[in-house]
Design a protein around this nucleic acid. Structure first.
Lengths: 98, 98
DNA sequence: TCTCCATGCGTAGACTGTCTACATGTAGAC
DNA sequence: GTCTACATGTAGACAGTCTACGCATGGAGA
């Protein structure tokens, strides 16, 4: 989850709702993350210093827009390499060379 | 976890301890799953009818050897395809086409 | 006008699964 | 006699996700 959020925010700052849509889009509909997962996760990442959130107003609507911090960018690199190691490890068990 | 256990048992029945070693070996040391994860998981899979366990004696030692049931084999196929979908979805977010 | 839906943020509580740490015991090597 | 590898298992903490809510605005259509 953390890696996904960081990755989506890599290019441009987005607010929660837009992040959910971006995840759905980028994954071709496969990833439909509920708000109960995303919002707490964003908070968590903000507390950890990986994201910076800011309130903005679009018309009457209030949005909390998050952007990646430098620490977040580094964390993303780590998450990506961890993900690769992870899938390689699982893959080596699930699809052993025949 | 379930997929990993089922996959390791696909070729031959094994007991818990051997399963842990097999996972470590097959993954090149990356996967070191603690007993507190494996044993309950094996029980769970057995209760679900995906594995069949049987006590055996090797010398003075007692082992519980698990083998894949037909349902387990089907479940494994499902797990494999689910894993592929999953990694594809995550990958499309983490490593978008540039 | 009124209602409904998409937009938008958020929390409470249930649920699930993993991990740490422990208990128990045998066999064999030194 | 003690240590290590083998072997199974549980209790309880912990973390993260999901379901199901509550609240509010804006715009489209009946």
């Amino acid at each position: 989850m953390d890696a996904l959020l960081l990755s989506v925010l890599e290019r441009e700052p987005l607010h929660g709702y837009a992040i959910i849509e971006a995840l759905r889009e980028r994954s071709g509909g496969a990833l439909d993350v509920p708000t109960g997962t995303v919002y707490p996760a964003l908070r968590r990442l903000e507390r950890a210093g990986l994201l910076a959130g800011e309130w903005a107003s679009d018309g009457g609507r209030k949005r909390r827009t998050y952007r990646l911090t430098d620490a977040g960018r580094k964390a993303l690199a780590g998450e990506r390499s961890a993900w690769r190691s992870f899938t390689t490890a699982i893959g080596s068990v699930l699809d052993p060379l025949r």
